[in-house]
Simulated assay, not measured.
Amino acid sequence: MAKKKQIGRRVEGWKAKSWYKVYVPESFGSTPIGETIAADSANLVGRVMSTTLGEIAQDFAKQHIKMKFKISRVAGDAAYTEFIGHELTKDYLRSLVKRRTSRIDSHIMGSTKDGKRIHLTVTCYTLIGANSSQIHAIRGVMYAQMTAFVAQNDWATVVDGIVTGSISRDLLAQVKGIFPIRRIEVIKSKIESKVIIA
């Protein structure tokens, strides 16, 4: 004889859970970015929420910047987060690639002044094709500048430099004397730690 489905228990399980509104850090305006559900608020800590900078800033021009936030504490029905990294969308990155030009990537691993171990990917797009020695020189400058910047600043300052574009502008000023450069982007950042994906 077939067993009856225990629908009642499943409904009771969902009723036992609560919804929590998730907020980005104060540095991003404490904007709500959505809601998440849990039976116990303690289970929310460590959960990762994703959105775009365009949604946070209400600026469509920044929709290509994907942001990740990890819930760090819960108070009542509000969950508060910390920023743990970003990534530019693949469509946006493809739009930056032009024929007969060079793309130069530099991967920076380092620790910030406040002890955050981070990984950054910085990409340079040239106006014309560069040879191997020019690529090596450009990558060397980007790596040296970014390694020093990370070591001399806290994570909040690094994040501000990424979001405002000041890091990209400063790198461009340093590199354009070597070779004609069209654009420099910090295409990805993340804190090197284990997180629970929602």
Rank of each mutant, 00 (worst) to 15 (best):
M1K: 10
K4G: 14
K5I: 13
I7N: 11
R10L: 14
G13E: 10
K17Q: 15
K17L: 09
S18G: 06
Y20R: 03
V22F: 00
Y23A: 06
P25T: 02
S27F: 14
G29H: 12
S30N: 12
S30P: 03
G34R: 07
A38Q: 06
A38Y: 04
A38K: 04
D40K: 10
D40E: 03
S41F: 01
A42Q: 11
V45Y: 08
G46K: 08
G46F: 10
G46V: 08
R47L: 14
R47K: 15
R47A: 09
M49D: 04
S50M: 12
S50F: 09
I56F: 01
D59Y: 04
M67V: 06
K68S: 02
K70T: 14
I71M: 08
I71N: 11
I71T: 14
A78M: 12
Y80C: 04
T81R: 02
T81N: 04
F83R: 01
I84N: 03
I84V: 02
I84H: 02
G85D: 00
H86C: 11
E87Y: 08
Y92F: 10
L93M: 12
L93W: 05
S95L: 03
S102F: 02
S106A: 15
H107M: 06
H107I: 15
M109W: 07
M109T: 07
T112E: 01
K113C: 02
D114M: 05
G115M: 07
G115L: 12
K116L: 07
K116I: 04
K116Q: 10
R117A: 14
I118A: 06
V122G: 05
T123G: 07
C124T: 15
T126R: 00
G129D: 07
G129T: 14
Q134M: 14
I138N: 05
I138Y: 05
R139W: 00
M142V: 14
A144Y: 10
M146D: 03
A148Y: 07
V150E: 04
V150R: 00
N153A: 11
D154S: 10
V158I: 15
V159N: 06
V159L: 09
I162T: 06
V163R: 05
G165E: 09
R169N: 13
D170W: 05
L172P: 00
A173S: 13
Q174L: 15
Q174W: 06
K176D: 11
I178V: 09
F179L: 07
I181R: 01
I181W: 01
R182S: 12
I184T: 01
V186E: 00
I187H: 06
E192I: 14
E192C: 09
V195S: 06
I197R: 11
